[in-house]
Computed example of a mutant assay.
Amino acid sequence: MKKMILIAGPCVIENEELVFKIAQELECFLKDDRIDFYFKSSFDKANRTSISSFRGPGLEKGLEILQKVKDKFGMQILTDIHESSQASIAAEVVDVLQIPAFLCRQTDLLVAAAKTKAKVNVKKGQFLNPDDIKYSIAKILQTRGIGKEGYEIAKENGVFVAERGSSFGYGNLVVDMRSLVIMRKYAPVIFDATHSVQMPGANGGSSGGKSEFVEPLARAAASVGVDGFFFETHIDPCNALCDGPNMLDLSRLKNCVNTLLKIQEVI
């Protein structure tokens, strides 16, 4: 059976102590031979709703902390970048560069990521037709000198894409499960279960969310067929400095992942 990709960690690096506590709780997934595990956290959240929102420790300090996680736990690391200049620097530490949803068509950012040795995870924009993700993938593959396209080509060259819901009116997202099938024609697909329950701008100067729907949506995606899952998780989501309303409490994550593995065995 192929391994399930699992990307998990806190939305943003709040402090080194918390990051290490969460990484320690996630270590069980690293040791599970059914899972290809990546620890995720952001050194900067450049697209927060309000200018007063917490963004993170910044590039230099953030990468220093992520390197410590890598050294201590032996985990593969994923983080997002927002500017082309960050790609080569971040790729010295992390294994996967993530392209944020709002920037999924940003050519210079995609090209900069493609020029590194890192894998690239492109989050499909809330505004994007799922079929159009092929153009973002092509920018990466062509930059890497690959003239072909398709699921296997993207997989072999370290490119995957993430579904995180589509805008449905104002302040709401929905997941069209057809998009998982459509995007999987072009690359391995990660289902971002926690951002899919986000409610943009619902808390005034920050986003809200309905975390009680994380697990049902993840199970639905598993039954459709995806290559992996993305969960932002926290010891205390209610007091998290970013995306608390849609993050999954660590205490719920293990049971959720075990259920998804069982569904994938059937599929």
Rank of each mutant, 00 (worst) to 15 (best):
E17L: 10
K61C: 00
F54N: 04
T49W: 02
H82V: 04
D44L: 01
E83V: 05
A91K: 08
F102V: 14
F39E: 03
K68A: 13
F29N: 14
L63A: 05
E25G: 03
R55H: 05
R48E: 10
L30C: 12
Y38S: 06
Y38N: 10
S85P: 01
G58I: 02
G58C: 04
L30M: 14
F20M: 15
H82S: 07
I81K: 02
C28N: 11
I35H: 08
V96C: 13
S88P: 04
C104M: 09
F102D: 09
L109M: 07
A90C: 14
K68T: 01
E27R: 14
L66F: 12
L63D: 05
K68R: 15
D95Q: 00
L59I: 07
V69K: 10
I81W: 00
L59E: 04
L18A: 07
I51T: 08
K40Y: 00
T79F: 02
L66S: 00
F43S: 05
S50D: 03
L78R: 05
I81R: 03
G74L: 06
L66A: 03
S41I: 02
G74W: 12
D33Q: 13
E25H: 12
S84W: 00
K45Y: 05
L109G: 06
L109I: 06
G62I: 04
S50E: 08
R34Y: 11
L103I: 12
M75L: 11
L18V: 12
P57H: 01
D108W: 06
S53F: 07
G74F: 12
G58D: 03
R55K: 13
L97W: 02
A101M: 10
S52D: 10
D80E: 15
K68L: 06
T79E: 05
Q106T: 09
D108H: 12
V96T: 13
G58Y: 02
D32R: 12
S88D: 13
D44I: 00
L26Y: 09
F39D: 09
I65Q: 01
G56L: 05
L78P: 06
I81C: 01
D33E: 15
I89V: 15
K40E: 03
K70S: 11
R34V: 07
S42W: 02
K45Q: 05
S50Y: 11
L103V: 12
Q98H: 08
S52N: 11
Q98A: 13
I99V: 07
C104N: 12
T79A: 02
T107E: 03
Q98I: 08
E92T: 10
Q24I: 07
G58E: 08
F102I: 15
A46Y: 09
F73Q: 03
V96N: 02
S53Q: 03
K21G: 07
T107L: 05
D44H: 07
V93F: 09
F29G: 13
F43M: 01
C104G: 12
R105T: 06
R34K: 14
L18I: 11
E25I: 05
S41E: 08
Q76V: 02
E60S: 14
V93L: 06
D36V: 00
V69W: 04
E92R: 15
I22N: 13
V69F: 07
S41N: 07
K40L: 01
L103T: 13
